[in-house]
Simulated assay, not measured.
Amino acid sequence: MTTVAQLLAQSQPLLVGSDSPALDIELLLCHCLEKERSYLRAWPDATVPDLALQQFQTLLQRRIDGEPVAYLMGERGFWSLDLAVNASTLIPRPETELLVEVALGKVQEKPSATILDLGTGTGAIALSLAAERSDCAITACDIEAAAVALAESNRKKYALDNVELCQSDWFSALGQQRFDLIVSNPPYIDPDDIHLEQGDVRFEPRSALVAANKGLADIEHIISRAPAYLTEGAWLLFEHGYDQAAAVQSLLTEAGFTQIFTEQDLAGVDRVTGALGPWRSKTNG
């Protein structure tokens, strides 16, 4: 018979490759017990049922092998939502919440704004915006059908009917639509970045992580096509890598964007860059 306290004590030393072994183990055990983390504090002497113990041991070994906790649990909290995740998409990260925060600020004065989320993945950004602004019409697209299906499942969970999902290679399926705001957390990692062989990103889809031209290729593409999909006075916002702010600002300047700015995340890292878009007549996107 194994108690909660015994299992926690036995398991933590085994998880040497994690930055947060105690948290990882608590999350996995709560997942197997179908309990909140407060249960572990309140009932340390409770016996762990055999089925839950077997499930926990299986998940712990997978975590020891490096698999992300979010994939093991099948969900990740983001903004005010608990989102289903799987290996077809990136795992939503806390720093991306800055993009949601900045986006909300840009449409604060715009009732019934139209918003586009490019490369939506789990739907984290689009659904968070939709939950905060029920009056806004949000389109979210991704090139991967599996990602669109996952985002649609998350949308249905929260009945966010102001979000429309579609499969699209960036702007390719959007026709003549225009938007008051375009947001994107695109692939922005250099294919030669050594961090791709470390931590959770080893298990995430490479296509959602890396881009050519030192990680800037997809950002360049979006910047070049975005003006034809922006309404007059609309904004374009990106999440990008820690060292890419200057390059993204330069690309926006060259494309005719104005009022360019960069915001830092809670760690003090340049994380989101945006600009007021140049408006032009529709061209093929």
Results as ranks from 00 to 15, higher is better:
237 L>D: 07
227 P>Y: 13
182 I>R: 10
122 T>R: 05
127 L>C: 05
125 I>V: 15
159 A>T: 10
218 D>E: 11
172 S>C: 15
227 P>T: 00
240 H>Y: 06
178 R>T: 13
207 S>A: 12
133 R>T: 14
193 D>K: 00
157 K>W: 13
144 E>K: 13
243 D>T: 04
215 G>Y: 02
153 S>N: 14
200 D>H: 05
180 D>L: 08
202 R>I: 12
217 A>P: 10
235 W>N: 09
156 K>L: 13
132 E>T: 12
204 E>I: 02
134 S>H: 12
171 F>Q: 01
231 T>M: 09
166 C>R: 15
135 D>Q: 08
166 C>Y: 11
210 V>Y: 01
208 A>Y: 03
246 A>S: 13
224 S>P: 05
158 Y>P: 02
246 A>W: 00
241 G>T: 00
207 S>L: 09
221 H>E: 06
154 N>I: 06
135 D>T: 04
143 I>V: 15
153 S>R: 15
224 S>M: 12
247 A>C: 11
220 E>H: 07
194 I>F: 00
152 E>H: 13
218 D>N: 08
150 L>F: 06
121 G>H: 08
158 Y>S: 10
145 A>I: 15
216 L>M: 14
215 G>W: 01
188 Y>K: 00
138 I>L: 12
217 A>H: 05
215 G>M: 02
145 A>W: 15
229 Y>P: 01
222 I>E: 06
185 N>C: 10
141 C>G: 04
144 E>I: 15
181 L>S: 10
191 P>M: 10
154 N>Y: 05
233 G>P: 04
158 Y>K: 13
162 N>S: 09
207 S>N: 07
172 S>H: 15
146 A>D: 14
226 A>L: 10
147 A>N: 02
184 S>R: 03
189 I>G: 10
165 L>D: 07
153 S>G: 15
170 W>L: 14
124 A>P: 01
215 G>P: 05
236 L>V: 09
206 R>T: 03
162 N>Q: 08
132 E>Y: 02
147 A>D: 03
137 A>N: 15
205 P>T: 04
182 I>A: 12
158 Y>I: 12
149 A>M: 10
225 R>T: 06
244 Q>C: 05
218 D>T: 03
215 G>N: 01
209 L>K: 00
181 L>N: 09
194 I>E: 15
209 L>V: 01
152 E>R: 14
170 W>T: 03
228 A>Q: 12
193 D>E: 04
181 L>C: 09
243 D>E: 09
223 I>M: 03
157 K>D: 00
200 D>Y: 08
197 E>D: 15
185 N>H: 07
203 F>Q: 07
193 D>L: 01
197 E>C: 12
244 Q>K: 02
244 Q>F: 08
225 R>N: 11
145 A>K: 14
196 L>M: 08
210 V>F: 01
